[in-house]
Nucleic acid binder design. Structure first.
Lengths: 190, 190
DNA sequence: CTCATATCTTGCCAAATGGCAGGTAATATG
DNA sequence: CATATTACCTGCCATTTGGCAAGATATGAG
């Protein structure tokens, strides 16, 4: 029961009781493919763990093209950190790419758990640290890797994306157009 | 005396004694323009606060061009977080753009202070959070703003850069070439 | 199973960007 | 002050990337 939540919050300082308490605070929600979980301009009020399915975030660029900023896979935390933790409107939109199962918790309740369970704060600190490294790493890879290599890496890390997401959305995540990605795929297949 | 250090670590949970202790652990270092503070491939062992001067970080892209990843101004913390906190080789190089005054502390000692002074841990948590938001924000701005607007914003936020840094290094920070930046500047001046 | 829709590929052309180099200006050095 | 060096601008041309659209393929709905 709610094993997924316990597995996400693994930390040496979190006891079984802590995990039970946290798990009990998350409510299950089924969303259909295409459901908008958080809309641009809204202030995020909920925090989600993705049990199954695929979620995507995107923004609009200076020319109003839709640019994918992240793909969220199973067992990942699905939030827009700036909006949720700074209580400001989100620049990004969250949308379910496939039917998905989410475990959600209101931000208020999340905060209470966070401050009342020391191990949870510790876990949170690690999460923020890890998140910072991942974000930095992605920025660097946009510079140091070619689009081809970024594509190969994404395919390796989240192969399930290919089965559900149009190339156009993958291309924008890689910083190129669908036309270019199509040409890259042709190159690779040789 | 070492007012700069105290001002950087401002936090309600840090007492005057805490700040004194922290300040006393930082050693002053004068570096000349052009000095390499951290080299690509090295594991960072020191943490710096920049009192005066300007520092730049850069990486090499897939085509071996030097790309500026950050400009550090006075009163900022000058580190490569991934290398320092994960103890792995840095992908980025840190170099003094002008003569600079740094206050440094060995990572080991930093860790000790960090874990022994509760207010310092709290401060650190805020720093990580803020750093994550800033990094995310920069990624988003590379998408949502035009190069012209990114240039205008940089000039507004860190005007001192113009006086010391060649256009080529500014251009690479903005994700364009010096040729393009030169054309943008021409446009703007009308 | 069939039809409608969405996705993907590809060729053609246009536009944007970059490389290069010469000339000019600014800065640093002795 | 004279000279050397570096930085900056700009015109020319090459290359890359993107927009568009048509055709091919795959997917989904009924």
């Amino acid at each position: 029961m709610v094993e997924i939540i316990k597995s996400v919050y693994q930390h040496p300082l979190l006891s079984e009781e802590d995990l039970e308490k946290m798990a009990a605070s998350h409510k299950k929600e089924n969303v259909k493919k295409g459901t908008v979980i958080l809309k641009q301009e809204q202030v995020a009020n909920e925090y989600y763990i993705l049990e199954s399915g695929l979620v995507r975030s995107y923004v609009h660029d200076y020319d109003n093209n839709e640019i994918t900023t992240e793909f969220f896979a199973e067992n990942e935390i699905v939030i827009v950190p700036t909006s949720l933790f700074q209580r400001i409107p989100s620049q990004e939109t969250l949308v379910a790419v496939t039917d998905a199962v989410l475990w959600k918790i209101a931000f208020e309740e999340f905060q209470q758990l966070y401050h009342s369970i020391p191990g949870f704060s510790e876990w949170g600190r690690l999460w923020f640290t890890h998140q910072l490294f991942a974000t930095k790493q992605r920025s660097l890879e946009m510079i140091t890797k070619t689009a081809t290599n970024r594509y190969l890496k994404l395919m390796q890390e989240k192969p399930q994306i290919m089965q559900h997401v149009p190339l156009k959305q993958i291309a924008s995540y890689l910083g190129i157009t669908d036309t270019s990605l199509s040409r890259i795929r042709k190159e690779i297949s040789h």
